[in-house]
Design a protein around this nucleic acid. Structure first.
Lengths: 337, 337
DNA sequence: CGGCGACTTTATAGCGCTCGAAAGGTCGCG
DNA sequence: CGCGACCTTTCGAGCGCTATAAAGTCGCCG
């Protein structure tokens, strides 16, 4: 059974290919009788339109790419899920591309990519700099996720990382914590995201009249829970004292919970812990995590809005949209001490 | 800047389109001088081949679809990641399709799908029956993941669910446990996967000389950690006594850990817990999870092997491949009681 | 009864690329 | 020196579909 083509249907129904095409695409001016006849031929032959031919003829593929570091990190998997739903609501398909979080991988996704496959791309960079973003600029519209610096002419959607970190710190302080550590930024140069969250953390401390202390910053070598656990163990071994902990992400928080537990420290009794991303699982831990919850639905929706405007031909300077966030309160850092 | 086409490059280099095509595809019989000239034109114009045109001309798209229930479940996200890596190693691109775990969604992915987009598909069904699989059979090669019954003429890759469940039970028994419960199958009719794991659980009990007791089966209404937690709470409220627990998946195990903790039961002291899937995060919990770890790399590799053979034109009866698994030992069910 | 406009259907021409075969060159060997 | 056996490059056609515009069909007003 070779593939059934439009021509096959046309011949079978005794009409022109164009008429079949009109029926398939729901074109208005087709007589009911004709529509029915063609429809019958379609079902009889089991015809299904070929995406490539259509795409070639229309110039649109109906696909959008989402490039991000790693599917194994729950935040990205959940974000991809949300974005996929947003796409399907609009009749689009989402193509997922992992970049490994390396500038290498990110560049590759944008540059070496075949043309024509997708109408546009949503990118969550982790290593790219502004200059690189610029170089990479191409014929395909792109929307960036996250607060990377100076988006050249591209659109951008993000939460207010600095503000959210301040909120988290305020929450910890309100529950009586005074020695607040930060866990999970990169050991080398911090990523942009980590940087912003660190900035907000420091601002929050200052606002609360507390003195930022570099000794309270615990970087991790690996961006997963194990890396955070190891880093916190090492810091505690080195004499770190703390009663509150803001984590760069929920993976770090998971590692922190484990490290604290293994050392007999109670959460939130001895140390209150705040995570970031509010991944599904973190709500079912014991204790459940208090975590910064970005409005991922809004993130996805706004990103697609902007992207589709570009796909539609809009030529405007780069726009910057900030979507909301909230602090999801769990047991790891309850409202009162 | 309109898109640069093969024709543009050809004109710019003063050669025929076919020659450019030959250079792009690394065809052998092109003189070095010509190759260089064309290459220069390509870089100068920034030409990138258009996937649609090529696909239309060759009949291959170089894309493979992976259809599975839900990206928010870490197991599937991690599996998708592994499969994506396996694809990129072979120069393929992976298109992810969430089915929601409903027969509806699964059917839609196979049937209403545009033709020509992908060369083949790997499908992890959750609700489809054999009859439905059959009906859905189409021109695109398909490989099924999981032990759904009687794969008609399609290939299939899975782990030995029954055997793995027996192993897990044996491990619990070896550490002195005698009242082993099972947590996490569906409240209504059990999915095929749950069924097999339940079968293995029962077999394991019988092999150990223990009597299977329906009172030890704890179904959950929602397939996530919260659902498992609620179900276990309810069962314990109803008087369930246990010293060992085999969970249908790690999400259920996470919910179980929380429920047990909230009730003051120690893991593994009072209850040893075994999860399933060995997701990344479950290794960083406190206690870390003992969990059945399917060889996902082998799963992905074998599935792609089979699929590509079909894509290459192989016409053979359905094949059934079983890949390995092991029990990853964690603190929730250590080797000795 | 002619003819204009609204509604249906059809022919033509590509979208960007690669396959088959055939056309220009080059070389070697009898 | 000529002819076949190459190697290299080109030509023509077409993958499956749709945009455009033109052709055909009908009804109805003047």
């Amino acid at each position: 059974m070779g593939r059934v083509t439009l021509r096959d249907v046309a011949e079978h129904a005794g009409v022109s290919m164009m008429t079949v095409s009109n029926v398939v695409n729901g074109y208005q001016h087709v007589s009911p009788a004709m529509r029915e006849r063609v429809q019958a031929a379609i079902t009889e032959l089991g015809y299904r339109p070929d995406a490539r031919g259509r795409s070639l003829a229309t110039g649109r593929s109906g696909m959008v790419a989402f490039a991000f570091p790693d599917l194994r990190r729950p935040y990205f998997a959940e974000l991809a899920h949300v974005l996929a739903r947003a796409c399907s609501r609009r009749g689009l398909r989402l193509l997922l591309e992992e970049t490994d979080g390396t500038g290498e991988g990110e560049r590759a996704v944008l540059r070496d990519r075949d043309a024509g496959l997708v109408d546009g791309a949503v990118i969550h960079p982790a290593a790219l700099t502004a200059a690189e973003l610029d170089e990479v600029r191409r014929d395909t519209p792109v929307v960036f996720l996250g607060e990377d610096p100076q988006p050249p002419r591209a659109d951008q959607v993000a939460i207010d990382n600095v503000g959210a970190a301040r909120d988290a710190v305020a929450h910890l302080v309100a529950s009586g914590r005074r020695r607040l550590a930060f866990l999970g930024h990169e050991t080398g140069p911090a990523s942009r995201t980590s940087q912003l969250r660190l900035d907000g953390y420091r601002e929050g401390l200052v606002l609360a009249g507390l003195e930022p202390d570099p000794a309270l910053l615990v970087a991790r070598a690996e961006g997963d829970a194990r890396g955070a656990e190891a880093a916190l163990h090492a810091a505690l071994d080195a004499g770190l004292q703390l009663d509150g902990l803001l984590c760069r992400d929920d993976l770090a928080a998971v590692g922190a919970l484990r490290a604290l537990r293994l050392r007999g420290l109670d959460v939130p009794g001895d140390v209150a812990v705040v995570g970031w991303d509010a991944i599904d699982l973190s709500e079912s831990l014991a204790p459940s995590l208090t975590s910064v919850a970005p409005d991922t639905t809004a993130l996805a929706e706004r990103a697609l809005d902007l992207l589709l405007e570009r796909v539609g031909g809009l030529d405007a300077p780069g726009r910057h949209v900030t979507v909301g966030h909230r602090l999801r309160i769990g047991e790891s850092a309850p409202r009162t001490a």
